[in-house]
Simulated assay, not measured.
Amino acid sequence: MSYVLYPLTFDAPVHFGAAGEGGGLTRTEMAFPADSLFSALCAELAASDEMEALDSLLEKAKAGKLRLSNLLPWQALDGEEMAFYLPRPLLVQGEALPCGASYTESCEKATAYKRQKKLRYLRASRLQAYMTARSSGNAFPDEAVRLGSASLRQRVNCREAMTLPYFVGQFDFAPGAGLYLVAYLADEADADWLREILTLVGVSGIGGKRSSGYGAFHLADDPIFLEENGIYEDDTALYALLMAEAAPQQMAIASVLPKEDEIRLVQQGSYRLRKSGGFIGGVRLAAKKDSVCMVEAGSCFAQRMEGRIVSLGEAEGHPIYRYGCGFFVGITGENR
């Protein structure tokens, strides 16, 4: 059994659909969900006629021998340190101010909490400090995270008789920044196999507008085996969080599609839902997938969920799957 971290560097801007914000070409996200990544791996293997590798990928995922996190941000810091970020826990903030607090104190606390809610990601090594500050009613200090910038780029549609301009939202990663994947592998020998698949997918790219060169990437460094002696502060902290199965809060780091008997756990937790749909690649005429609601990364529950992979029908004689297996880190803190 191994937890392996793969840091990715993007060779071009990315266009990741922002379904939570209404979608559309002008909107884009920075991170990439596990279900979309799994679909990209399967589609690339099928397009490359690597059917044996595709069958193996599906078999390992269904058997729980392979689990994937969302693609989450990393950046190089001063020196040789690399920072690996996790989603901010989606926990309800309770009453933090003591009775009799002054107007000035109330305003300062309210302003600090508003800034805190805007935090999307925290360093893995700072996550527990965030939970401690939150539990004690203190505001967590802002952290400067400069991973890149989002922008709009004008494109021209030349397929019609009249050329028309349109705009595409894109995210450009800053130098020394990118996304990383954490994979659970029941067999440590599969680490190189998964690396080869990621290398193959990186040539074609992930996300939207790949025909325009978007989403291409390569591995920034060798895979990091987290159970070995930590290389950086954050990968050491990340491994400890992954192993904290008895922690009172279990935070998802991948979009989850709960099993029917796990719905009660969702109802008792703090969560956000994301509608996941899209189109099936590889068909002559674009076909829309059935949509499902996924529990978003950052959601917190009392215990870990296994999740599931569901079939969304068939296209060109083969089944279409939606990946929704659970992947969690354990954190200490109360849902106040």
Rank of each mutant, 00 (worst) to 15 (best):
C325Q: 13
R308N: 08
Q170F: 07
Q154T: 15
K60C: 01
T111H: 09
T236S: 10
H318S: 02
V283M: 07
L147R: 03
G277F: 06
E306Q: 15
F84R: 03
K62M: 13
R284A: 13
K289V: 05
G230I: 02
P7C: 08
V92R: 02
E316T: 00
Y130M: 01
S204Q: 13
P258M: 05
L238V: 04
D261E: 13
E81R: 15
L198V: 11
S135A: 14
D172L: 13
E29R: 13
M305T: 04
S39W: 03
E228R: 14
F301I: 01
S2R: 14
T132M: 04
E29C: 09
K117D: 01
G79E: 06
I231A: 11
D290F: 06
E81L: 13
L45Q: 12
G207S: 01
A216R: 15
L25S: 14
L57K: 12
G324D: 02
G17R: 12
R195Y: 10
M1T: 13
L86Q: 11
K275M: 12
D221T: 01
M131H: 04
P319L: 06
G278V: 08
L91D: 00
D190W: 08
L226K: 04
L257H: 04
R304S: 12
G169Q: 07
F38T: 03
